[in-house]
Every structure is written in structure tokens, then in C-alpha cells.
Computed example of a mutant assay.
Amino acid sequence: MVLTSACTSSSGGEKEKAGPATPPASARPSTATPPDPAETAKAEALSAYKGYWTEMPKALSVRAIEGTDLKRYAAAEALSKAEVSVGNLKRNGRITTGEPVVTNSTVTAAELEKKTPNVSVSSCLDISKWKIVDKQTGEPAPGASSPVSRYVVVSLMERWDGAWKVLKDDLRADQPC
């Protein structure tokens, strides 16, 4: 109410002084530089990488790739390993609970001028809250824990038909983060 009355108050009979007119936005010269295509490509790859790590736990918690968007973000070896993991969980009566936490995702290498552009992404994967449990009892699965819960993961991604996909993950348990 105070802001409205301050903006609309007038002294009535006095003529208000107008400041200098500013040219419309379209008449002003543009000082913004166009986005760097390489940086745009890297940002798109990192966005797809985030999508991959959002969809992977979903697939493992319901023991199915179907009903998730994992195929949108994964292909080749990464998708094949996910399908095998889902099958193993289903066969052994297990599911996953919780989610991994992925931090410090960085494009560490990029070949964007190739026929099939690719990038490598390095990040820290924290699996301390992502557990494999028995589907019936909810108890932790025997032998399902790892001595290292935070480690480096390096992923190879390629752009296929305009979309970035994770092709391969290299989990480096010997490199804690």
C-alpha cells in the first residue's frame, strides 16, 4: 500500500518535471556477446549428465528401465550396465533406496568439432545414502556395502541426434573425493 501511494501521489496542480527520455530497448546498441557454442554444448552435456543421475536411481528402485527417462540420457555400455543391474536386483529380490549425491560435475575434456561430439565429465559420487536392500524385509542386502562411499566417477558422453547421452562410466573407488 505504501509503495502504491508513493508511486501515484501527485501534488495536484503542479506540473511534474519529466526526466530525459530513454530510447526504447530496440534502439539501444546491444553490448551482450553471443553465447560461446562450446560453453553452451558443455552446459547441455552437464544438464544431461544430471538427468542421467536422476533417472538411474529411479530405475534401480523400481527394478525397471521402463517408466523412467533413463534411455533419454544413457546409451551403449552405460544403458547396458543399468539393464543388467536392474535384472540382477529383480532376480535377487532386491531394490535400492535413497539416492546417490553427485557433486562437482565438470567437463574435463571436450571434442566438440568431431562428427560425433563428445565430452568427459568428472564428478564426485557419494553413495552413502544409496542402499541395496531386500525388497520384502527392507533389510540391507548382505555384501551390498562398499568400504568407500565417496569416489570419483568419470563419464564419457556423446551427442547423438542433438541429445547428450552417457555412454560409459568409470567408477574410481581408488580415488576418494
Rank of each mutant, 00 (worst) to 15 (best):
N88T: 13
Y73M: 02
Y73D: 02
V101F: 08
A82G: 04
I127F: 09
A82F: 10
W130I: 04
V62T: 09
V121W: 00
G87R: 15
G98K: 14
K135W: 02
M56N: 04
V121P: 03
G138I: 01
R94A: 15
K135N: 07
D134G: 05
D126L: 05
S120I: 11
K115P: 03
R91W: 12
K71H: 02
K115Y: 03
Q136V: 11
N88Y: 15
K131I: 01
V101H: 06
K81W: 13
K90V: 05
V62M: 11
D126C: 04
D69R: 15
V119R: 00
S123Q: 03
P57D: 09
K90D: 12
A76K: 10
E83G: 09
D126Y: 06
A59E: 04
E113R: 08
D126M: 08
V133M: 01
D126Q: 08
A82D: 10
S80Y: 06
S120E: 13
L112E: 05
G51Y: 07
A74Q: 09
N88G: 15
Y73V: 01
M56T: 14
R94P: 11
G51N: 09
T68K: 04
N92C: 10
E77P: 02
A110H: 01
L112R: 01
R91E: 15
S80W: 10
I65F: 04
K135V: 03
K135D: 12
D134I: 02
T68D: 12
W130S: 05
I127T: 14
L70M: 05
L89F: 14
D126S: 02
I127N: 06
A74N: 07
V86M: 06
W53I: 02
V62R: 13
